[in-house]
């Protein structure tokens, strides 16, 4: 329990450090929000003098003319008051934007995680049980290849194959535009249940399959390797021999003795891999025009929309930290030896 409390106590510190880094990093990028806005968008009719004048006006309006330290201070105090500011473009409230996009990203990453765990566990166990055979070699080779494939390549490939050639699945967005959807929680599955609208589920799944699988495949290859290694290790443990001595069948030994004991390293890796999954979701969301936090973040960076970048990065960091606290809780559930103290 103490372990979990410790991790929870560290969350604000992590978020403070991270928000400081994001605050600094975005301002180190060449260009500023004002230059983009001052040029008058795409019309390009503004003169140099106009631009300079506009820039000053805009900087003043956005508070970007103040010293960096005072900008930093007001950014921090706003966060403490749970105010993430509003977008430089259009003035949308960031908290509201995150409320719309974060559920989409959670859906995507959780779906990807489930697919990856399913594939990774099955192939990893299979490879371990058939160690040294061609099945083992084939599984590991495919695993290595899939986890070496970059997300964007896999994403574009799947769009071309399943969306363009085969026309099996939609490749853009989260739900069809024509669909009449009034979000309540913004989690489609949850809303479908709460609003009693089962017809929402299929279009949602249809849109989720490709991006989630794209995201899942590289992680699945990694999980395969970890699962294989830890199952092999546990298979060599003395208590597995005890289970055989009892007269248990191989299936019962696997189910009751091997899996639980090999799950610890697997769960650790899953928690850490969730971070790279979130990173991958930024790319995947962009490729599939999926309205998640990653997409929001990329647009924010391109437009130098500081509050959006800061808010989106914070949201992703918070998600990652919470997942790892959950992983710690899972440890305690899985291994009674850790429950002391």
């Amino acid at each position: 329990m103490r372990l979990v409390l410790k991790r929870l106590a560290a969350v604000p510190v992590v978020l403070l450090v991270l928000s400081t880094m994001v605050f600094a990093a975005i301002r180190l990028l060449p260009g500023s929000p004002a230059t983009g806005l001052a040029a008058g968008g795409a019309s390009g009719t503004a003169t140099a003098a106009d631009i300079t004048a506009n820039t000053e006006k805009i900087n003043a309006a956005l508070g970007l003319d103040k010293p960096l330290l005072s900008q930093y201070w007001s950014f921090l105090s706003d966060i403490v008051h749970l105010d993430l500011g509003s977008s430089f473009y259009g003035g949308n409230d960031i908290t509201g934007l995150l409320g719309d996009t974060l559920p989409a990203t959670i859906e995507l990453t959780v779906a990807a995680m489930l697919i990856a765990v399913l594939i990774g566990m099955l192939t990893g166990i299979l490879a371990a049980l058939r160690r040294g055979t061609w099945i083992d070699t084939a599984t590991r080779t495919i695993g290595t290849v899939s986890f070496s494939l970059p997300w964007f390549a896999l994403g574009v490939l799947s769009i071309v194959v399943f969306g363009v050639w085969l026309r099996w699945l939609p490749v853009i967005g989260r739900l069809p535009n024509a669909l009449d959807y009034h979000p309540l929680t913004n989690f489609v599955l949850l809303d479908a249940i709460l609003q009693d609208r089962p017809e929402l589920i299929w279009p949602w799944l249809e849109h989720l399959i490709l991006p989630a699988t794209t995201l899942a495949l590289s992680m699945a290859g990694f999980i395969t390797r970890i699962v294989r290694a830890s199952v092999l290790e546990v298979l060599g443990d003395d208590f597995v021999r005890t289970a055989r001595m009892k007269g248990l069948s191989p299936a019962a030994i696997l189910r009751r003795h091997v899996l639980r004991n090999s799950s610890l390293p697997i769960v650790t890796v899953l928690g850490l891999q969730f971070g790279s999954l979130l990173g991958g979701s930024v790319i995947t969301e962009t490729v599939f025009s999926y309205p998640g936090v990653g997409n929001l973040l990329v647009n924010g960076i391109l437009q130098r929309d500081y509050p959006i970048v800061q808010g989106a990065a914070l949201a992703i960091a918070l998600l990652f930290t919470l997942v790892n606290v959950f992983v710690d809780l899972l440890y305690l559930a899985l291994d009674p030896r850790l429950r002391k103290a």
Binding site: D237, D238, F239, R241, T242, A243, R244, M245, K246, G247, L248, S249, H257, R260, N261, L334, D335, P336, R337
Partner: peptide, 22 residues
């Protein structure tokens, strides 16, 4: 499997390792 544990059983040396920790 029908003999193991029913007709012939084994008590192993290092009980800590031979028992399932979970």
């Amino acid at each position: 499997r029908g003999v193991r544990g029913r007709d012939i059983a084994v008590v192993f040396q290092d009980a800590l390792a031979a028992l399932n920790p979970t």
